Deep mutational scan, measured.
Amino acid sequence: MPSETPQAEVGPTGCPHRSGPHSAKGSLEKGSPEDKEAKEPLWIRPDAPSRCTWQLGRPASESPHHHTAPAKSPKILPDILKKIGDTPMVRINKIGKKFGLKCELLAKCEFFNAGGSVKDRISLRMIEDAERDGTLKPGDTIIEPTSGNTGIGLALAAAVRGYRCIIVMPEKMSSEKVDVLRALGAEIVRTPTNARFDSPESHVGVAWRLKNEIPNSHILDQYRNASNPLAHYDTTADEILQQCDGKLDMLVASVGTGGTITGIARKLKEKCPGCRIIGVDPEGSILAEPEELNQTEQTTYEVEGIGYDFIPTVLDRTVVDKWFKSNDEEAFTFARMLIAQEGLLCGGSAGSTVAVAVKAAQELQEGQRCVVILPDSVRNYMTKFLSDRWMLQKGFLKEEDLTEKKPWWWHLRVQELGLSAPLTVLPTITCGHTIEILREKGFDQAPVVDEAGVILGMVTLGNMLSSLLAGKVQPSDQVGKVIYKQFKQIRLTDTLGRLSHILEMDHFALVV
Protein backbone atom coordinates (compact mmCIF):
# COMPACT_ATOMS: atom_id res chain seq x y z
CA MET A 1 0.00 0.00 0.00
CA PRO A 2 1.46 3.38 -0.95
CA SER A 3 2.14 6.01 1.69
CA GLU A 4 0.47 8.58 -0.54
CA THR A 5 -3.22 7.88 -0.95
CA PRO A 6 -4.36 7.56 -4.56
CA GLN A 7 -7.90 8.47 -5.51
CA ALA A 8 -9.95 5.39 -6.31
CA GLU A 9 -11.06 5.38 -9.92
CA VAL A 10 -14.78 5.39 -10.62
CA GLY A 11 -16.40 3.16 -13.21
CA PRO A 12 -19.03 4.43 -15.58
CA THR A 13 -22.09 2.52 -14.35
CA GLY A 14 -23.49 0.42 -11.52
CA CYS A 15 -23.14 0.57 -7.77
CA PRO A 16 -19.76 1.25 -6.14
CA HIS A 17 -20.21 -1.25 -3.36
CA ARG A 18 -20.43 -4.54 -5.20
CA SER A 19 -19.28 -7.42 -3.06
CA GLY A 20 -16.32 -9.40 -4.23
CA PRO A 21 -12.77 -8.55 -5.29
CA HIS A 22 -12.46 -4.92 -6.29
CA SER A 23 -11.00 -3.78 -9.54
CA ALA A 24 -9.33 -0.47 -10.12
CA LYS A 25 -12.79 0.76 -11.10
CA GLY A 26 -14.25 -0.27 -7.75
CA SER A 27 -16.59 -2.95 -9.13
CA LEU A 28 -16.46 -6.64 -9.98
CA GLU A 29 -13.79 -7.49 -12.50
CA LYS A 30 -13.97 -10.74 -14.44
CA GLY A 31 -11.16 -12.10 -16.56
CA SER A 32 -7.96 -14.08 -16.46
CA PRO A 33 -5.59 -14.07 -13.44
CA GLU A 34 -3.14 -12.12 -15.58
CA ASP A 35 -5.78 -9.45 -16.24
CA LYS A 36 -6.58 -9.21 -12.54
CA GLU A 37 -2.93 -8.96 -11.59
CA ALA A 38 -2.48 -6.14 -14.07
CA LYS A 39 -5.63 -4.23 -13.12
CA GLU A 40 -6.12 -4.80 -9.41
CA PRO A 41 -4.89 -1.86 -7.30
CA LEU A 42 -2.69 -2.01 -4.23
CA TRP A 43 -5.63 -0.77 -2.21
CA ILE A 44 -8.97 1.01 -2.50
CA ARG A 45 -9.87 3.95 -0.31
CA PRO A 46 -12.57 3.19 2.29
CA ASP A 47 -13.86 6.74 1.78
CA ALA A 48 -14.13 6.61 -2.03
CA PRO A 49 -17.06 8.68 -3.36
CA SER A 50 -20.30 6.73 -3.40
CA ARG A 51 -21.96 5.93 -6.71
CA CYS A 52 -25.08 4.49 -5.10
CA THR A 53 -28.21 5.13 -7.17
CA TRP A 54 -30.77 5.05 -4.32
CA GLN A 55 -33.18 7.97 -4.29
CA LEU A 56 -36.22 8.53 -2.12
CA GLY A 57 -39.29 7.68 -4.20
CA ARG A 58 -37.43 5.64 -6.81
CA PRO A 59 -39.17 2.30 -7.58
CA ALA A 60 -37.63 -0.73 -5.87
CA SER A 61 -37.69 -2.54 -9.21
CA GLU A 62 -34.89 -0.25 -10.42
CA SER A 63 -32.49 -1.39 -7.67
CA PRO A 64 -29.38 -3.13 -9.09
CA HIS A 65 -29.10 -5.31 -5.98
CA HIS A 66 -30.39 -8.69 -4.87
CA HIS A 67 -32.86 -8.13 -2.03
CA THR A 68 -33.98 -10.46 0.75
CA ALA A 69 -36.86 -10.38 3.21
CA PRO A 70 -36.88 -11.32 6.91
CA ALA A 71 -37.66 -15.03 7.22
CA LYS A 72 -39.44 -16.75 10.08
CA SER A 73 -37.10 -19.05 12.03
CA PRO A 74 -37.83 -22.79 12.09
CA LYS A 75 -38.19 -24.57 15.43
CA ILE A 76 -34.82 -26.26 14.92
CA LEU A 77 -32.15 -24.14 13.26
CA PRO A 78 -29.94 -25.85 10.63
CA ASP A 79 -26.92 -23.90 11.89
CA ILE A 80 -26.15 -20.92 14.12
CA LEU A 81 -26.17 -18.48 11.19
CA LYS A 82 -29.97 -18.75 11.18
CA LYS A 83 -29.91 -17.02 14.58
CA ILE A 84 -28.81 -13.78 12.93
CA GLY A 85 -31.62 -11.25 12.72
CA ASP A 86 -35.12 -11.21 14.22
CA THR A 87 -33.79 -9.47 17.35
CA PRO A 88 -36.21 -8.33 20.08
CA MET A 89 -37.63 -4.86 20.62
CA VAL A 90 -37.67 -4.07 24.35
CA ARG A 91 -39.30 -1.18 26.20
CA ILE A 92 -36.93 0.94 28.31
CA ASN A 93 -39.02 1.67 31.39
CA LYS A 94 -36.93 3.54 33.95
CA ILE A 95 -34.30 5.61 32.15
CA GLY A 96 -36.77 7.53 29.98
CA LYS A 97 -38.83 8.53 33.01
CA LYS A 98 -35.69 9.44 34.96
CA PHE A 99 -34.75 11.99 32.29
CA GLY A 100 -38.25 13.35 31.85
CA LEU A 101 -39.20 11.81 28.51
CA LYS A 102 -42.90 11.88 27.68
CA CYS A 103 -42.58 9.48 24.74
CA GLU A 104 -42.20 5.71 24.70
CA LEU A 105 -38.54 4.62 24.52
CA LEU A 106 -37.83 1.28 22.82
CA ALA A 107 -34.54 -0.60 22.32
CA LYS A 108 -33.74 -2.80 19.31
CA CYS A 109 -31.43 -5.30 21.04
CA GLU A 110 -28.89 -6.32 18.39
CA PHE A 111 -26.72 -8.14 20.93
CA PHE A 112 -29.18 -11.05 20.60
CA ASN A 113 -27.63 -11.93 17.24
CA ALA A 114 -25.59 -15.15 17.20
CA GLY A 115 -22.20 -13.42 17.42
CA GLY A 116 -23.39 -10.78 19.86
CA SER A 117 -23.69 -7.68 17.68
CA VAL A 118 -25.46 -5.86 14.87
CA LYS A 119 -22.43 -6.60 12.68
CA ASP A 120 -23.45 -10.26 12.39
CA ARG A 121 -26.09 -9.12 9.89
CA ILE A 122 -23.65 -7.48 7.48
CA SER A 123 -21.01 -10.19 7.91
CA LEU A 124 -23.38 -12.93 6.81
CA ARG A 125 -24.87 -10.78 4.05
CA MET A 126 -21.44 -9.88 2.60
CA ILE A 127 -20.42 -13.55 2.56
CA GLU A 128 -23.71 -14.74 1.05
CA ASP A 129 -23.61 -12.09 -1.68
CA ALA A 130 -19.96 -12.90 -2.45
CA GLU A 131 -20.82 -16.60 -2.69
CA ARG A 132 -23.82 -15.84 -4.89
CA ASP A 133 -21.78 -13.86 -7.44
CA GLY A 134 -18.96 -16.42 -7.47
CA THR A 135 -16.35 -14.30 -5.72
CA LEU A 136 -15.94 -16.49 -2.63
CA LYS A 137 -15.09 -20.12 -3.31
CA PRO A 138 -14.36 -23.06 -0.99
CA GLY A 139 -10.89 -22.75 0.53
CA ASP A 140 -10.63 -18.98 0.01
CA THR A 141 -9.41 -16.54 2.66
CA ILE A 142 -11.46 -13.66 4.10
CA ILE A 143 -9.49 -10.63 5.34
CA GLU A 144 -11.19 -7.68 7.02
CA PRO A 145 -10.07 -4.48 8.77
CA THR A 146 -12.47 -4.01 11.69
CA SER A 147 -12.94 -2.70 15.21
CA GLY A 148 -13.82 -6.26 16.19
CA ASN A 149 -17.56 -6.89 15.87
CA THR A 150 -17.55 -7.31 12.09
CA GLY A 151 -14.54 -9.58 12.58
CA ILE A 152 -16.46 -11.72 15.05
CA GLY A 153 -19.41 -11.94 12.66
CA LEU A 154 -17.14 -12.89 9.75
CA ALA A 155 -15.18 -15.39 11.86
CA LEU A 156 -18.44 -16.98 13.01
CA ALA A 157 -19.70 -17.34 9.45
CA ALA A 158 -16.27 -18.47 8.22
CA ALA A 159 -16.18 -21.19 10.89
CA VAL A 160 -19.55 -22.51 9.71
CA ARG A 161 -18.83 -22.09 5.99
CA GLY A 162 -15.23 -23.31 6.10
CA TYR A 163 -13.21 -20.24 5.10
CA ARG A 164 -9.88 -19.08 6.47
CA CYS A 165 -10.38 -15.75 8.26
CA ILE A 166 -7.80 -13.04 9.04
CA ILE A 167 -8.92 -10.05 11.12
CA VAL A 168 -6.89 -6.82 11.28
CA MET A 169 -7.83 -4.58 14.21
CA PRO A 170 -6.39 -1.60 16.13
CA GLU A 171 -4.65 -2.20 19.45
CA LYS A 172 -7.26 -0.26 21.46
CA MET A 173 -9.92 -2.91 20.88
CA SER A 174 -10.74 -5.09 23.86
CA SER A 175 -8.98 -8.32 24.77
CA GLU A 176 -12.39 -10.01 24.96
CA LYS A 177 -12.90 -9.44 21.23
CA VAL A 178 -9.48 -10.94 20.54
CA ASP A 179 -10.26 -14.00 22.69
CA VAL A 180 -13.58 -14.60 20.94
CA LEU A 181 -11.96 -14.23 17.51
CA ARG A 182 -9.24 -16.73 18.41
CA ALA A 183 -11.82 -19.17 19.76
CA LEU A 184 -13.64 -18.96 16.41
CA GLY A 185 -10.41 -19.86 14.62
CA ALA A 186 -9.59 -16.44 13.18
CA GLU A 187 -6.04 -15.21 12.77
CA ILE A 188 -5.51 -11.74 14.27
CA VAL A 189 -3.19 -8.90 13.31
CA ARG A 190 -3.04 -5.80 15.55
CA THR A 191 -2.20 -2.29 14.32
CA PRO A 192 -1.40 1.02 16.08
CA THR A 193 -4.53 2.78 17.32
CA ASN A 194 -3.25 6.23 16.37
CA ALA A 195 -2.37 5.32 12.75
CA ARG A 196 -4.38 7.32 10.20
CA PHE A 197 -6.70 5.22 8.06
CA ASP A 198 -4.62 5.99 4.93
CA SER A 199 -1.33 5.03 6.58
CA PRO A 200 0.34 1.74 5.56
CA GLU A 201 0.39 0.87 9.29
CA SER A 202 -3.38 1.31 9.78
CA HIS A 203 -5.78 -1.63 10.01
CA VAL A 204 -7.01 -0.74 6.52
CA GLY A 205 -3.48 -0.50 5.10
CA VAL A 206 -2.27 -3.74 6.68
CA ALA A 207 -5.37 -5.63 5.51
CA TRP A 208 -4.77 -4.58 1.90
CA ARG A 209 -1.09 -5.52 2.14
CA LEU A 210 -2.09 -9.00 3.33
CA LYS A 211 -4.64 -9.30 0.53
CA ASN A 212 -1.95 -8.50 -2.04
CA GLU A 213 0.32 -11.18 -0.54
CA ILE A 214 -2.13 -14.06 0.10
CA PRO A 215 -3.52 -15.98 -2.91
CA ASN A 216 -7.31 -16.34 -3.22
CA SER A 217 -7.93 -13.82 -0.47
CA HIS A 218 -10.70 -11.23 -0.39
CA ILE A 219 -11.45 -8.07 1.55
CA LEU A 220 -15.24 -7.91 1.65
CA ASP A 221 -14.76 -4.28 2.69
CA GLN A 222 -17.55 -3.22 5.02
CA TYR A 223 -16.66 0.43 4.34
CA ARG A 224 -17.60 0.18 0.64
CA ASN A 225 -19.72 -2.94 0.29
CA ALA A 226 -23.39 -2.36 -0.56
CA SER A 227 -24.24 -5.53 1.36
CA ASN A 228 -23.61 -3.52 4.54
CA PRO A 229 -26.50 -1.03 4.28
CA LEU A 230 -28.57 -3.54 2.28
CA ALA A 231 -28.58 -5.97 5.21
CA HIS A 232 -30.26 -3.31 7.33
CA TYR A 233 -32.51 -1.98 4.56
CA ASP A 234 -33.85 -5.48 3.87
CA THR A 235 -34.07 -6.93 7.40
CA THR A 236 -33.33 -4.65 10.36
CA ALA A 237 -35.57 -1.83 9.13
CA ASP A 238 -38.40 -4.21 8.21
CA GLU A 239 -38.20 -5.83 11.65
CA ILE A 240 -38.44 -2.41 13.31
CA LEU A 241 -41.47 -1.46 11.20
CA GLN A 242 -43.19 -4.77 11.96
CA GLN A 243 -42.44 -4.61 15.68
CA CYS A 244 -43.71 -1.02 15.88
CA ASP A 245 -46.69 -1.62 13.57
CA GLY A 246 -45.24 1.08 11.34
CA LYS A 247 -45.57 3.71 14.07
CA LEU A 248 -42.36 5.41 15.20
CA ASP A 249 -41.41 9.07 15.40
CA MET A 250 -37.66 8.96 15.98
CA LEU A 251 -34.80 6.52 15.48
CA VAL A 252 -31.43 7.03 17.20
CA ALA A 253 -28.34 5.09 16.10
CA SER A 254 -24.62 5.44 16.74
CA VAL A 255 -22.51 5.52 13.58
CA GLY A 256 -19.35 3.65 12.59
CA THR A 257 -19.19 2.47 8.99
CA GLY A 258 -22.63 4.02 8.60
CA GLY A 259 -24.25 0.91 7.16
CA THR A 260 -26.74 0.51 10.02
CA ILE A 261 -28.11 4.05 9.99
CA THR A 262 -28.02 4.30 6.18
CA GLY A 263 -29.93 1.08 5.54
CA ILE A 264 -32.51 1.60 8.28
CA ALA A 265 -33.01 5.30 7.54
CA ARG A 266 -33.55 4.79 3.81
CA LYS A 267 -36.32 2.24 4.46
CA LEU A 268 -37.91 4.40 7.15
CA LYS A 269 -37.85 7.45 4.86
CA GLU A 270 -39.80 5.36 2.35
CA LYS A 271 -42.27 3.73 4.73
CA CYS A 272 -42.49 6.17 7.64
CA PRO A 273 -41.49 9.59 6.25
CA GLY A 274 -42.31 11.51 9.42
CA CYS A 275 -39.72 9.60 11.48
CA ARG A 276 -36.71 11.72 12.45
CA ILE A 277 -33.30 10.03 12.10
CA ILE A 278 -30.71 10.95 14.75
CA GLY A 279 -27.02 10.09 14.26
CA VAL A 280 -24.61 9.67 17.18
CA ASP A 281 -20.90 10.35 16.66
CA PRO A 282 -18.22 10.29 19.42
CA GLU A 283 -16.09 13.34 20.17
CA GLY A 284 -12.84 12.90 18.25
CA SER A 285 -14.60 11.49 15.17
CA ILE A 286 -15.49 13.46 12.03
CA LEU A 287 -18.70 11.78 10.84
CA ALA A 288 -21.20 14.35 12.12
CA GLU A 289 -22.62 17.30 10.22
CA PRO A 290 -22.38 20.27 10.20
CA GLU A 291 -18.58 20.17 10.31
CA GLU A 292 -18.49 22.59 13.28
CA LEU A 293 -19.77 19.77 15.51
CA ASN A 294 -16.50 17.90 14.96
CA GLN A 295 -14.22 20.73 16.10
CA THR A 296 -12.40 19.50 19.20
CA GLU A 297 -8.88 19.06 20.51
CA GLN A 298 -9.72 15.46 21.38
CA THR A 299 -8.40 12.94 18.88
CA THR A 300 -8.91 9.64 20.73
CA TYR A 301 -11.83 8.03 22.54
CA GLU A 302 -12.38 4.82 24.48
CA VAL A 303 -15.80 3.77 23.18
CA GLU A 304 -15.39 1.10 20.50
CA GLY A 305 -17.06 0.42 17.18
CA ILE A 306 -18.28 3.93 16.34
CA GLY A 307 -16.67 7.03 14.85
CA TYR A 308 -13.89 7.34 12.25
CA ASP A 309 -11.32 9.78 10.93
CA PHE A 310 -12.76 9.39 7.41
CA ILE A 311 -16.24 9.23 5.87
CA PRO A 312 -16.95 5.61 4.82
CA THR A 313 -18.34 5.17 1.33
CA VAL A 314 -21.50 3.40 2.55
CA LEU A 315 -22.49 6.23 4.92
CA ASP A 316 -25.28 8.34 3.42
CA ARG A 317 -25.39 11.41 5.64
CA THR A 318 -28.28 12.92 3.65
CA VAL A 319 -30.76 10.60 5.41
CA VAL A 320 -29.71 11.77 8.89
CA ASP A 321 -31.91 14.63 10.11
CA LYS A 322 -29.73 15.68 13.04
CA TRP A 323 -26.37 14.72 14.53
CA PHE A 324 -25.32 14.69 18.18
CA LYS A 325 -21.82 14.23 19.59
CA SER A 326 -21.27 11.91 22.55
CA ASN A 327 -18.39 11.53 25.00
CA ASP A 328 -16.86 8.54 26.75
CA GLU A 329 -18.05 9.40 30.25
CA GLU A 330 -21.73 9.60 29.33
CA ALA A 331 -21.41 6.55 27.05
CA PHE A 332 -20.12 4.29 29.81
CA THR A 333 -22.34 5.82 32.49
CA PHE A 334 -25.46 5.15 30.41
CA ALA A 335 -24.26 1.66 29.41
CA ARG A 336 -23.86 0.76 33.09
CA MET A 337 -27.27 2.33 33.75
CA LEU A 338 -28.88 0.19 31.04
CA ILE A 339 -27.39 -2.90 32.65
CA ALA A 340 -28.21 -2.01 36.27
CA GLN A 341 -31.67 -0.49 35.78
CA GLU A 342 -33.06 -2.19 32.67
CA GLY A 343 -31.17 -5.51 32.68
CA LEU A 344 -29.91 -4.89 29.14
CA LEU A 345 -26.41 -6.38 28.89
CA CYS A 346 -25.16 -3.99 26.20
CA GLY A 347 -21.85 -2.39 25.22
CA GLY A 348 -20.50 1.14 25.43
CA SER A 349 -21.82 2.39 22.08
CA ALA A 350 -25.33 1.53 23.28
CA GLY A 351 -24.68 3.92 26.15
CA SER A 352 -23.74 6.63 23.64
CA THR A 353 -26.98 6.04 21.77
CA VAL A 354 -29.24 6.22 24.82
CA ALA A 355 -27.36 9.23 26.24
CA VAL A 356 -28.22 11.08 23.03
CA ALA A 357 -31.75 9.66 22.84
CA VAL A 358 -32.78 11.16 26.20
CA LYS A 359 -31.71 14.56 24.82
CA ALA A 360 -33.09 14.27 21.30
CA ALA A 361 -36.42 12.75 22.36
CA GLN A 362 -37.24 15.65 24.68
CA GLU A 363 -39.11 17.13 21.70
CA LEU A 364 -41.45 14.11 21.47
CA GLN A 365 -44.81 14.07 23.20
CA GLU A 366 -46.90 11.47 24.98
CA GLY A 367 -48.09 8.84 22.54
CA GLN A 368 -45.00 9.18 20.35
CA ARG A 369 -42.23 6.62 20.08
CA CYS A 370 -38.42 6.67 19.93
CA VAL A 371 -36.42 3.58 18.93
CA VAL A 372 -32.73 3.23 19.82
CA ILE A 373 -30.31 0.68 18.35
CA LEU A 374 -28.22 -1.18 20.94
CA PRO A 375 -25.37 -2.54 18.77
CA ASP A 376 -23.48 -5.07 20.88
CA SER A 377 -23.08 -7.00 24.11
CA VAL A 378 -21.22 -6.29 27.34
CA ARG A 379 -19.38 -9.58 26.70
CA ASN A 380 -16.79 -7.60 24.72
CA TYR A 381 -16.00 -5.20 27.57
CA MET A 382 -15.80 -7.21 30.80
CA THR A 383 -12.35 -5.82 31.60
CA LYS A 384 -13.24 -2.32 30.40
CA PHE A 385 -16.24 -0.19 31.38
CA LEU A 386 -17.83 -3.02 33.37
CA SER A 387 -14.80 -2.88 35.69
CA ASP A 388 -14.85 -0.24 38.45
CA ARG A 389 -11.06 -0.22 38.43
CA TRP A 390 -10.90 0.52 34.71
CA MET A 391 -13.48 3.27 35.10
CA LEU A 392 -11.47 4.80 37.95
CA GLN A 393 -8.21 4.60 36.06
CA LYS A 394 -9.74 6.32 33.03
CA GLY A 395 -11.32 9.02 35.18
CA PHE A 396 -14.95 8.02 34.50
CA LEU A 397 -15.57 7.16 38.17
CA LYS A 398 -14.46 8.90 41.36
CA GLU A 399 -13.16 7.19 44.48
CA GLU A 400 -16.14 8.42 46.48
CA ASP A 401 -18.46 6.60 44.06
CA LEU A 402 -17.23 3.28 45.49
CA THR A 403 -18.03 2.01 48.96
CA GLU A 404 -15.64 -0.94 49.40
CA LYS A 405 -13.18 -0.75 52.30
CA LYS A 406 -9.77 0.64 51.37
CA PRO A 407 -6.31 -0.01 52.95
CA TRP A 408 -4.82 2.58 55.32
CA TRP A 409 -2.57 4.13 52.67
CA TRP A 410 -5.30 4.54 50.02
CA HIS A 411 -5.89 8.28 50.46
CA LEU A 412 -2.25 9.28 50.97
CA ARG A 413 -0.74 11.50 48.27
CA VAL A 414 1.94 10.31 45.87
CA GLN A 415 4.20 13.13 47.08
CA GLU A 416 4.40 11.41 50.48
CA LEU A 417 6.46 8.64 48.88
CA GLY A 418 9.41 11.06 48.70
CA LEU A 419 10.29 10.08 45.13
CA SER A 420 13.53 11.33 43.60
CA ALA A 421 13.89 12.59 40.02
CA PRO A 422 14.17 9.62 37.63
CA LEU A 423 16.97 8.75 35.27
CA THR A 424 16.15 10.10 31.79
CA VAL A 425 17.68 9.47 28.37
CA LEU A 426 17.74 11.47 25.14
CA PRO A 427 16.09 9.95 22.05
CA THR A 428 19.34 10.26 20.09
CA ILE A 429 21.48 7.91 22.17
CA THR A 430 21.82 4.34 20.94
CA CYS A 431 19.93 1.30 22.15
CA GLY A 432 23.21 -0.34 23.15
CA HIS A 433 24.26 2.64 25.28
CA THR A 434 20.80 2.85 26.89
CA ILE A 435 20.94 -0.83 27.88
CA GLU A 436 24.36 -0.25 29.47
CA ILE A 437 23.03 2.74 31.44
CA LEU A 438 19.95 0.91 32.71
CA ARG A 439 21.96 -2.13 33.79
CA GLU A 440 24.58 0.04 35.48
CA LYS A 441 21.95 2.00 37.43
CA GLY A 442 19.78 -1.05 38.16
CA PHE A 443 16.68 0.32 36.40
CA ASP A 444 14.19 -1.53 34.19
CA GLN A 445 12.87 1.55 32.40
CA ALA A 446 13.48 5.26 31.91
CA PRO A 447 11.61 8.25 30.46
CA VAL A 448 12.84 9.52 27.10
CA VAL A 449 12.96 13.33 27.02
CA ASP A 450 14.15 15.83 24.45
CA GLU A 451 16.69 18.56 25.17
CA ALA A 452 13.90 20.88 26.35
CA GLY A 453 12.78 18.30 28.91
CA VAL A 454 9.56 17.35 27.10
CA ILE A 455 8.59 13.73 27.76
CA LEU A 456 8.49 11.75 24.51
CA GLY A 457 7.74 8.34 25.96
CA MET A 458 9.21 5.47 27.96
CA VAL A 459 11.83 2.90 27.12
CA THR A 460 12.08 -0.45 28.90
CA LEU A 461 14.97 -2.86 29.15
CA GLY A 462 12.75 -5.83 28.28
CA ASN A 463 11.34 -4.24 25.14
CA MET A 464 14.78 -3.20 23.89
CA LEU A 465 16.25 -6.66 24.43
CA SER A 466 13.34 -8.41 22.71
CA SER A 467 13.51 -5.96 19.78
CA LEU A 468 17.23 -6.63 19.42
CA LEU A 469 16.75 -10.40 19.54
CA ALA A 470 13.96 -10.19 16.95
CA GLY A 471 16.18 -8.12 14.66
CA LYS A 472 13.78 -5.17 14.67
CA VAL A 473 16.56 -2.80 15.79
CA GLN A 474 20.34 -2.85 16.02
CA PRO A 475 22.46 -1.77 19.04
CA SER A 476 23.58 1.24 16.99
CA ASP A 477 20.00 2.42 16.34
CA GLN A 478 18.67 5.39 18.27
CA VAL A 479 16.56 4.55 21.30
CA GLY A 480 13.77 6.67 19.85
CA LYS A 481 12.86 3.67 17.67
CA VAL A 482 11.74 1.56 20.64
CA ILE A 483 9.94 4.02 22.92
CA TYR A 484 6.44 3.51 24.27
CA LYS A 485 4.52 6.63 23.28
CA GLN A 486 1.43 5.68 25.27
CA PHE A 487 1.91 5.73 29.01
CA LYS A 488 -0.02 6.71 32.11
CA GLN A 489 0.79 9.92 33.97
CA ILE A 490 0.03 10.70 37.58
CA ARG A 491 0.49 13.87 39.63
CA LEU A 492 2.15 14.26 43.02
CA THR A 493 -1.21 15.37 44.40
CA ASP A 494 -3.01 12.20 43.25
CA THR A 495 -3.74 9.47 45.77
CA LEU A 496 -1.90 6.19 46.14
CA GLY A 497 -5.26 4.55 45.50
CA ARG A 498 -5.35 6.02 42.00
CA LEU A 499 -1.72 4.95 41.46
CA SER A 500 -2.66 1.45 42.64
CA HIS A 501 -5.41 1.19 40.02
CA ILE A 502 -3.01 2.29 37.27
CA LEU A 503 -0.35 -0.24 38.28
CA GLU A 504 -2.92 -3.05 38.27
CA MET A 505 -3.29 -2.52 34.51
CA ASP A 506 0.07 -1.04 33.48
CA HIS A 507 3.67 -1.89 34.31
CA PHE A 508 4.59 1.68 35.23
CA ALA A 509 3.28 5.22 35.62
CA LEU A 510 5.13 8.48 35.16
CA VAL A 511 4.87 11.02 37.99
CA VAL A 512 4.70 14.54 36.52
Rank of each mutant, 00 (worst) to 15 (best):
P2V: 09
S3W: 02
S3F: 14
E4S: 11
E4H: 15
T5N: 15
T5L: 02
P6K: 11
P6W: 02
Q7V: 13
Q7A: 10
A8W: 02
A8L: 12
A8T: 15
E9R: 08
V10F: 12
V10Y: 11
P12M: 08
P12I: 02
G14E: 07
G14L: 11
C15E: 09
C15Y: 10
C15H: 10
P16W: 02
R18G: 10
G20C: 02
P21V: 02
H22G: 04
H22E: 13
H22W: 06
A24M: 11
A24D: 08
A24C: 10
A24K: 04
K25T: 08
S27D: 15
S27F: 05
L28A: 08
K30I: 02
G31W: 13
S32E: 11
S32Y: 10
S32L: 10
S32P: 12
S32F: 07
E34A: 05
E34I: 02
E34G: 11
E34M: 11
D35S: 08
D35P: 09
K36F: 13
K36P: 10
K36L: 14
K36C: 13
E37F: 11
A38R: 08
K39W: 11
P41F: 02
L42G: 13
L42N: 02
L42R: 14
R45M: 08
P46L: 06
P46I: 08
P49H: 15
S50M: 02
T53N: 14
Q55C: 12
L56F: 14
L56D: 11
G57D: 11
P59I: 11
P59Y: 02
P59C: 15
A60F: 05
A60V: 10
A60Y: 11
S61P: 14
S61E: 14
S61A: 11
E62C: 13
E62Y: 13
S63V: 06
S63I: 08
H65L: 04
H65S: 05
H66P: 08
H66L: 11
H66Q: 15
H67G: 05
H67F: 12
H67N: 02
H67D: 02
T68R: 10
T68S: 10
A69P: 15
A69G: 06
P70F: 05
A71G: 12
K72L: 14
P74F: 08
K75I: 06
I76Q: 04
I76L: 13
L77Y: 08
P78H: 15
D79K: 02
D79V: 12
I80Y: 02
I80A: 05
L81C: 15
L81S: 09
K82I: 08
K83P: 08
I84F: 15
G85R: 10
D86L: 02
T87A: 13
R91W: 04
R91A: 07
R91H: 02
R91T: 15
I92Q: 02
I92D: 08
I92F: 10
K94T: 13
K94V: 05
I95C: 09
I95L: 02
G96A: 12
K97I: 12
K97Y: 09
K98F: 04
K98L: 07
K98I: 14
G100P: 02
G100Y: 02
L101C: 07
K102P: 05
E104I: 07
E104V: 15
L105F: 11
L105N: 04
L106V: 10
L106Y: 10
K108S: 06
K108Y: 08
K108W: 02
C109G: 02
C109I: 02
E110R: 06
F112H: 04
N113V: 04
A114H: 09
V118L: 04
V118M: 14
K119E: 13
R121M: 02
I122G: 02
I122N: 09
L124V: 02
L124H: 06
R125W: 10
R125P: 11
I127A: 10
I127F: 14
D129W: 07
E131R: 02
D133Y: 14
G134M: 15
G134I: 02
L136S: 05
L136C: 13
L136R: 02
P138L: 12
P138K: 10
P138R: 12
G139C: 10
G139Q: 09
D140I: 05
T141M: 11
T141N: 11
T141F: 12
I142L: 09
I142H: 02
I142T: 04
I143K: 02
E144K: 13
E144P: 06
E144C: 06
T146G: 04
T146M: 04
T146Q: 11
T146A: 05
G148L: 04
G148F: 08
G148V: 07
N149T: 02
N149F: 07
G151L: 02
G151C: 04
I152T: 08
I152E: 04
I152D: 04
G153A: 02
A155N: 06
A155E: 02
A155C: 10
L156P: 10
A157S: 04
A157K: 06
A159C: 06
A159F: 02
A159R: 11
R161S: 14
G162W: 04
G162D: 12
Y163K: 05
R164S: 14
R164H: 14
C165T: 06
I166S: 07
M169W: 07
P170L: 04
E171I: 08
K172C: 02
M173C: 10
S174K: 02
S175W: 08
S175T: 15
E176Y: 02
K177D: 02
K177Y: 02
V178I: 06
V178N: 02
D179W: 07
G185I: 04
E187T: 15
V189F: 02
R190I: 06
T191C: 09
T191A: 02
P192C: 09
T193N: 11
N194V: 02
A195D: 02
A195T: 09
R196F: 08
R196L: 09
D198N: 10
S199C: 10
P200R: 10
H203K: 07
V204S: 02
G205M: 02
G205L: 02
G205Q: 15
G205R: 10
V206E: 07
V206M: 12
A207D: 07
A207Y: 02
A207T: 08
W208L: 05
W208G: 05
W208A: 14
W208M: 08
W208E: 05
R209W: 08
L210T: 08
L210H: 04
K211S: 02
N212M: 10
N212W: 09
E213R: 10
P215V: 06
P215M: 09
N216G: 06
N216W: 02
H218V: 15
H218Y: 09
I219K: 02
I219A: 05
L220C: 06
L220Q: 05
L220K: 07
D221G: 07
D221S: 02
Q222V: 07
Q222Y: 02
Q222I: 02
Q222W: 02
Y223W: 02
Y223D: 02
R224G: 07
N225R: 06
A226N: 12
A226G: 07
S227C: 08
N228M: 02
A231E: 05
Y233M: 02
Y233K: 06
D234I: 05
D234V: 02
D234Y: 10
T235D: 07
T235Y: 12
T235C: 10
T236C: 05
I240T: 15
L241E: 02
L241F: 09
L241G: 08
L241V: 11
Q243P: 04
C244S: 02
D245Q: 09
G246C: 02
K247A: 12
K247D: 02
K247L: 09
L248N: 02
L248E: 02
L248D: 06
D249A: 15
D249W: 02
L251Y: 06
L251D: 02
V252L: 02
S254D: 02
S254Y: 02
S254P: 09
G256N: 02
T257S: 07
G258F: 02
G258I: 04
G259N: 07
T260N: 06
I261N: 02
I261S: 02
I261T: 13
I261M: 09
T262I: 02
T262V: 09
G263P: 05
G263E: 06
G263M: 04
I264G: 04
I264V: 11
I264R: 05
A265T: 14
R266C: 05
K267F: 11
E270F: 10
K271D: 02
K271P: 05
C272W: 10
C272R: 10
P273Y: 02
P273T: 05
G274C: 02
G274T: 02
C275L: 07
C275Q: 07
R276C: 09
